[in-house]
């Protein structure tokens, strides 16, 4: 097959991923508002289009037409790039997420993943850490006390949840013997890892909830104490980029949970991509459900949870898993 064809296919693939992601992020906002509405016995947005289905488009247009205000004494450059940094890292992490088995069209193998790096898992970890820079820099640069407090909390949270988040994935790496996400999914051909690693799943999920900066771990943007936390000073499209980052992150966590523990695209009857989408949606639904159910933790409580409960459990889990597998 020719080079040009390869480029075209690559671009089609990327644009499809990007379009689906941004679309999913936009509709995730609608889904969240709808579900929260239903959980609170109200209908949620229902005016723009049938059942409010055009609401994300209206919101996006509104954001695009809003003025972009830069507060006095802000660190201009950092203030300007911070939201893009957050959105960029979360979107970039999707490069290594496989959406299905290799397609074979006309004798040419087309992998359904943008970049099957053999250090995929490490890259996702690294990107999720870099994403915190968006929070910390954005909050610090806006020269507002609320923002700075949000930024400090974001950074303080990151140094707490990263450790259990990565340690919880060690058993998955042990079981599949690879960092590549495609290999990890392939290793779950027979059974999803959640069946053999329920504890690792629980640890990963709690840490991932903290990573998503959502209730009950939404201290960086706790709206009733810090206005909007690190993005208090943001407006217009930059504010929207923070939101894109947050909601793409929800989708990303759904995808990662699906890949690491729920068996990725494997599943009976339905085509792989459908299975994968279904599995992706489980986590966001649960996150929204959590938002409607639980109150917010203090951030020292989160640190205690991460350092004194999750990390020891994760370490223990590694040893026990190793003993079972070696034995």
């Amino acid at each position: 097959m020719s080079m040009t064809m390869g480029i075209v296919v690559l671009f089609v693939k990327m644009l499809a991923v990007l379009a689906v992601l941004l679309g999913m992020a936009a509709y995730m906002v609608l889904l969240e508002r709808k579900l929260l509405g239903w959980f609170q016995l109200r209908p949620g947005p229902n005016r723009v289009g049938p059942f409010g289905l055009l609401q994300p488009i209206a919101d996006g247009l509104k954001m695009l037409l809003k003025e972009d205000i830069i507060p006095r004494d802000a660190e201009r450059l950092l203030f300007l790039i911070a939201p893009a940094l957050l959105a960029l890292t979360t979107l970039l992490a999707f490069a290594v997420v496989p959406f299905g088995p290799d397609l074979v069209i006309g004798g040419q193998v087309i992998p359904q993943v943008i970049s099957d790096l053999n250090v995929g898992l490490l890259m996702i970890m690294a990107l999720s850490s870099i994403g915190v820079y968006g929070v910390a820099l954005g909050g610090w640069a806006s020269n507002s006390k609320f923002s700075l407090l949000g930024a400090i909390r974001g950074a303080a949270m990151m140094i707490s949840y990263e450790l259990p988040l990565s340690l919880a994935l060690v058993p998955v790496v042990m079981l599949s013997g690879s960092f590549s996400l495609t290999d990890i999914v392939n290793a779950q051909q027979g059974y999803p890892f959640i069946l053999v690693q329920p504890l690792a799943f629980a640890l990963f999920f709690v840490s991932a909830m903290a990573e998503s900066k959502r209730v009950p771990f939404d201290m960086p943007e706790a709206e009733n104490e810090l206005m909007a936390g690190f993005h208090t000073e943001y407006s217009g499209m930059r504010f929207a980029l923070f939101f894109v980052g947050e909601y793409v992150n929800m989708v990303l966590l759904g995808a990662l949970t699906a890949v690491f523990f729920l068996g990725g695209w494997h599943g009976p009857f339905l085509p792989p991509i459908v299975w994968f989408l279904i599995k992706i949606m489980i986590t966001p639904f649960f996150l929204i459900w959590t938002r409607a159910s639980l109150p917010r933790l203090r951030y020292d409580q989160l640190m205690h949870l991460c350092w004194k409960v999750l990390t020891p459990l994760a370490l223990l889990n590694i040893i026990v898993t190793g003993a079972f597998m070696a034995g």
């Binding site: 579900l35 239903w38 959980f39 016995l41 109200r42 209908p43 459900w289 959590t290 159910s293 639980l294």
Partner: peptide, 18 residues
């Protein structure tokens, strides 16, 4: 925690007040 989750889930199937 489980009770809170269940309580909220039950609200999905109740009649809306709006």
């Amino acid at each position: 925690i489980a009770d809170a989750y269940l309580m909220v889930l039950r609200h999905l199937f109740r009649k809306q007040l709006t």
